[in-house]
């Protein structure tokens, strides 16, 4: 069998442009982990059921274990590594920490990327909508209660962040900490 030709893959990952050479049968998750060393994205079931490999492609959550890397040509991929801004964790990440929304942590990157898409589509989901939105992300540790709480707290953090941006300039640091504190209180 003749060696198959590698193909040029141009894509953006977490805001950075990349030019890669990939084989057509390489999966997006493998390119992210093995070529770009973005190992936050996990491989669980490998068949699109568990959600551990969830990344955003042009803003939409997808199973990167079922996506060919070549199919991401010209697209913008966001992984868990791309959520923090200037060294500060994303409000969803902060909420998961504040609420104890993970134990072993293996599902967490996928869970947070799933939550990111959910909150981008619906900034104020009901508990039922959160459960439906994360229905394809499996966690074997937490029993989901703390994960649902984390997303609810993230909703409040994001709302406070938006209110802060819209209103008079506020110091984001203390406001954020205060919000996380109140989130913890609410969760208990």
């Amino acid at each position: 069998m003749s060696p198959r030709q590698k193909r040029q893959l141009s894509l953006e990952v977490n805001g950075e442009p990349y030019e890669l050479l990939v084989e057509p049968h390489w999966l997006l998750v493998d390119v992210l982990r093995d070529q770009l060393h973005l190992t936050g994205t996990k491989i669980g079931c490998g068949i699109g059921v568990c959600g551990a490999c969830t990344v955003l492609v042009d803003g939409q959550a997808v199973s990167s274990c079922l996506a060919l890397a070549v199919d991401a040509h010209g697209k913008a991929v966001t992984t868990i590594e791309g959520l923090a801004r200037e060294g500060r964790l994303h409000p969803i990440q902060q909420a998961f920490i504040a609420c104890g929304g993970f134990q072993c942590g293996f599902c967490t990157p996928g869970m947070i990327m799933g939550a990111k898409e959910l909150l981008d589509r619906n900034p104020a989901p009901t508990e039922e909508e959160i459960r439906a939105g994360l229905s394809g992300n499996l966690c074997r540790c937490t029993g989901y209660v703390k994960i649902i709480e984390s997303v609810q707290v993230a909703v409040r953090l994001l709302q406070e962040e938006m209110a802060g941006e819209a209103g008079a300039p506020v110091s984001p640091g203390p406001g954020r900490h205060a919000a996380v504190g109140s989130g913890q209180g609410g969760a208990r």
Binding site: V49, Q60, V62, S63, A67, G114, G133
Partner: peptide, 12 residues
């Protein structure tokens, strides 16, 4: 369609 698989799969 909202009953099909998960949001991720429905996106693809």
């Amino acid at each position: 369609l909202q009953l099909v698989a998960s949001p991720r799969i429905r996106n693809m």
